[in-house]
């Protein structure tokens, strides 16, 4: 995949360049944002085709809003996380039983085959357990513990208070821990 040749330019500045017709800015934003947007959608929906649709739709909204983007009001990434979260929520409410068909695969050369298989099994178990959580809990846990965002940013994305985020993530983690308890040995977490 091509490298982001404008890595020293901020997301907001890239968006301004994009609105001015700069094609290099379009490429840089695509490389920077699409993988992130797709990963969030994939983690929420667990379905590659649905996640690709959501990612393309979210990016299309970014392209269309670029010319009206108001500097300093929001981070581009926060805005995109919010758009993806809303699009995923819409899809989950329309089709609550989306099939989990694609679990992230281990990257080549990063781990031995055995470790790779174990990581794959752990990811598979985690995403299956995540799929059993209520949609808002799932959203909060993914944003906090997998995307690695802070509570204030998650509060902005989900349009709730930081206390509500803390409550959702705590309940979500407890539910995940319970859902995965029976698979402790299988996942290699049984050593004392």
């Amino acid at each position: 995949m091509a490298l982001d040749t404008m890595s020293d330019v901020s997301d907001e500045a890239l968006l301004v360049l994009f609105a001015n017709g700069d094609q290099a800015a379009a490429r840089a934003l695509n490389l920077r944002m699409t993988p992130r947007v797709f990963a969030q959608a994939m983690r929420m929906l667990g379905n590659r085709a649905e996640a690709e649709d959501v990612a393309q739709e979210a990016m299309m909204r970014l392209w269309k809003i670029a010319s009206q983007w108001r500097q300093g009001e929001a981070k581009v990434t926060t805005w995109l996380y919010r758009v993806v979260a809303n699009l995923c929520t819409d899809r989950l409410r329309r089709k609550p039983s989306l099939a989990i068909d694609a679990i992230p695969e281990p990257e080549d050369g990063q781990a031995s085959a055995a470790e790779g298989l174990q990581d794959q099994a752990r990811n598979s178990a985690l995403y299956q357990a995540l799929a059993t959580l209520p949609e808002r809990q799932r959203q909060a846990v993914i944003l906090r513990h997998i995307e690695g965002l802070g509570n204030p940013e998650i509060a902005e994305i989900m349009d709730i208070s930081t206390e509500a985020v803390e409550s959702l993530t705590a309940r979500g983690k407890r539910a995940l821990a319970k859902a995965l308890a029976g698979r402790r040995d299988e996942l290699g977490y049984s050593d004392g």
Binding site: F38, A39, R43, A102, P104, R122, L126, Y189
Partner: peptide, 15 residues
């Protein structure tokens, strides 16, 4: 649980 999250974070689904 944190280990599972770290594994998931390291292996982001690729477009």
């Amino acid at each position: 649980l944190d280990d599972l999250f770290a594994t998931a974070r390291a292996q982001a689904p690729q477009p």
